[in-house]
Design a protein around this nucleic acid. Structure first.
Lengths: 360, 360
DNA sequence: ATGCCTATTGCAAACCTTTACACTTTGTGC
DNA sequence: GCACAAAGTGTAAAGGTTTGCAATAGGCAT
């Protein structure tokens, strides 16, 4: 592989100039005469020479590589974040590396080492591992990482560690969904949450409780340990378990669309009709949510927007890395109203009644 | 940020040894006396020193960074590949970078430059851009890339360019699905494919044609330009368009599960029941496919297996980069039978009939 | 005491760029 | 003709590590 060992020195020799001049030509430095520049460029093109960004990075202490740390790229929520973040980085001439850290994992010293070693230009963290309130070591270990690179999180505030961050206003979003369901006449609403003690769960639950309380609605809470459609299917059963029919919830808010997908199937299996027997609201607005049966009403967390904003922060931070943490960016989730909550049907009925009235 | 500038020289000075000795301690080289080693380690721990992998990479001409080039990480098929590939790389102490290249993009000289510049240890390519039969420049441009790093593709053979690759046996897989539908009594089967001229489309279509021909079944082909559930919803209408009812297809094979999701919705809207009025078979076995209504029978392409195998090849290739291309690894897709094809229902009916017979 | 072998350590080159600084040449204004 | 500035180019250092080779010291056989 002759080409791959080709260095700037070889090009310089062939063009009859010094390596400095070649470097200047390649980086479009103005102080190069036109004839020299074109001679150099000819040699560069002839051999297809491409400078080694590793060597450049060493000298300039900038790798143009950004790390993204998240639990599971297969989960559409994280895929959305990653995708948008990658695009944003690409636009800035940088490239992203994925580091996986499990939902319930923790940011260990050892994990941090792997990041530091790479001398990244910055790191974007998101996932349960930065949300756990009892991770006492988190501020210290992240503080250490920050000595090497700027950090941005998509997550809640971390007590004892300030940094740039982006986060959806979950309590408000969920409250909005509860308001909507209440407006449709529901008096008993269930919430299928999670047993894991993370903020992204806690804030949803909080929003739900508050929303119900404010409206004097009966809040029924169920938690699941893992989040997968199959688990959602099971939890549909739990919703009614041991309750007389007149105490059944008439609506259910599900912690994410993946689970909601399972809940829909579970309700179907039980012979219940959505939204007539049970209204369902999900969370995430996944690509599949518009195509479930019935199409899912869901809280749009706007994963891509989160990813885009976070990466933008990170990129602007890399040029001025150690300023004080800016105000967190809060993204307000919007409710996407489809069929599963019954609002559309009701709208249609009202319209029909109206025109019937007119006809009389 | 004092720590971040800490070099091996500083550690060496503090420990009263040379940088060579520190390096040997850190890389577990045997020729270091126990007292020296522990003294060095103490200093390393004291400052939390972490070697700079950029500098190491420059010297060793190995970055332990692998590139993955694909169209869209949000698509669950690609997410599966990426996820599995990342895990495999992680297990080998390497890290992956994502480079996005649109479905219908082409591997340009400029794009290749960006990869070469990074001096990656290897590249995994997958997506329509390596499948187009009329991409005349592909062998040349990939050949150039290969001068710098080993290449593995998840894709069909590229005429004029040999490299390690992994690919599902699509014709055989689709034929298997057709056989299955024929076995259920279907005589007119539709295929919703794509207008794009890529091998992953062509091979499916080929398998479908051959499968139908062999069994004397009427093959009805429909192509869509883009693949999204919304488009699938539309294409459900096209399936019946202008046909007398007795000429309607009774089963449809859809190019992927995403589209199938839309087709299911479209059929529902038309008032058709799946699988009674129309059997549906998808392709990909996505996480949501088990939870559609009805659960989708689908051809399992095993994206994760593809990603895992490809990355494994790449990693083994990085140690011996320029050997002749090995035999391609062919993964045989399996048919996952759920409800949407009607086989389950039929099974149940036969069972019921049987026991009824016994009862008589 | 001599020679040889081994274990340990240090020296210095190499990896490939970029860039501050110095030098040469040419042009301009007086 | 001279001082000075500007433009173009080269030299060499720097970035942080690894590693071949040399050097030193100690142990052991002769």
């Amino acid at each position: 592989m002759p080409d791959s060992r080709l260095t700037i020195i070889d090009i310089a020799r062939e063009a009859g100039v010094s390596s400095a001049t070649v470097s200047r030509v390649l980086s479009k430095h103005p102080n190069v005469s036109a004839p020299t520049a074109s001679r150099v460029r000819a040699v560069v093109d002839k051999y297809g020479y491409q400078p080694n960004s590793i060597a450049r990075g060493l000298l300039q202490r900038q790798s143009h590589v950004l790390g993204i740390i998240m639990p599971d790229i297969k989960h559409p929520y994280y895929a959305g974040i990653f995708s948008a973040a990658q695009r944003e980085a690409e636009g800035a001439g940088a490239v992203v590396q994925l580091y996986r850290l499990e939902y319930n994992g923790s940011v260990t010293e050892e994990f941090i080492r792997r990041l530091i070693e790479r001398r990244l230009d910055g790191t974007l963290l998101t996932g349960g591992f930065i949300e756990s309130p009892n991770a006492r070591e988190l501020p210290a270990v992240l503080g250490r990482l920050r000595q090497y690179m700027p950090i941005v999180t998509i997550g809640p505030e971390i007590p004892g560690f300030e940094c740039a961050r982006v986060w959806p206003d979950l309590p408000n979003g969920v409250r909005r969904a509860v308001d909507h369901l209440a407006g449709l006449g529901h008096k008993r609403i269930a919430f299928i949450g999670a047993t894991t003690d993370t903020r992204s769960v806690g804030e949803r639950e909080q929003g739900f409780r508050e929303g119900c309380e404010r409206l004097g609605i009966e809040a029924m809470l169920y938690n699941e340990s893992i989040h997968h459609p199959a688990k959602g299917e099971e939890s549909a059963v739990r919703l009614l378990d041991g309750l007389p029919k007149n105490r059944w919830p008439t609506a259910v808010m599900v912690i994410n669309d993946l689970m909601a997908l399972g809940v829909l199937k579970g309700l179907r299996t039980l012979g219940l009709t959505v939204p007539d027997d049970m209204a369902v609201v999900g969370c995430d607005n996944q690509f599949f949510s518009a195509f479930t049966d019935p199409p899912l009403t869901t809280l749009n967390l706007n994963a891509e927007e989160l990813g885009r904003l976070a990466m933008r922060q990170l990129i602007s931070g890399t040029s001025a890395p150690f300023v004080n943490a800016p105000e967190p960016i809060v993204v307000d989730p919007g409710l996407i109203i489809r069929e599963s909550c019954g609002a559309r049907r009701r709208e249609a009925q009202m319209l029909a009644a109206e025109s019937a009235l007119k006809a009389v």
